[in-house]
Design a protein around this nucleic acid. Structure first.
Length: 107
DNA sequence: CGGCTGACGTAAC
DNA sequence: TGTTACGCCAGCC
């Protein structure tokens, strides 16, 4: 959806659509936006997403399900706790059965 | 104004 | 099969 002209807003729009109990990756979002090589920028957008309560940034991880951005949350374990509260299993900062809970924006 | 950095991912060697 | 390099966009020094 290109309703928003801003790359950031576009990212937020996708993240907002992540259903409860599901997660996605930066790369998938970037790819969905047509900027498959800009996964990095997506992550950067997440940084600003902190100001957007509607944007569940904790549901966005890297392609291997690793909570790479946990340090950017209020607390080191905030991201993990949020995910666990949604029924996810986090082990060593990594989502277990990641492929099972992965949500593809393109689908 | 230029260059470095960063929640990533993919390709190439 | 493991490591290195690069692209992309925006913010900050």
């Amino acid at each position: 959806m290109q309703q928003q002209n801003d790359f950031f807003e576009c990212v937020y729009e996708v993240v907002r659509q992540i259903p409860f109990g599901k997660v996605t990756t930066y790369g998938s979002i970037a790819k969905y936006l047509g900027a498959s090589k800009s996964a990095r920028t997506v992550g950067y957008a997440m940084n600003a997403a902190h100001a957007k309560p509607d944007v569940p940034a904790h549901r966005v991880v890297n392609r291997i399900g690793l909570l790479t951005g946990k340090h950017h949350f209020a607390g080191i374990n905030t991201m993990q706790q949020l995910l666990e509260a949604e029924g996810h299993v986090i082990l060593n900062d990594q989502i277990q059965q990641f492929d099972a809970v992965f949500w593809n924006p393109n689908a």
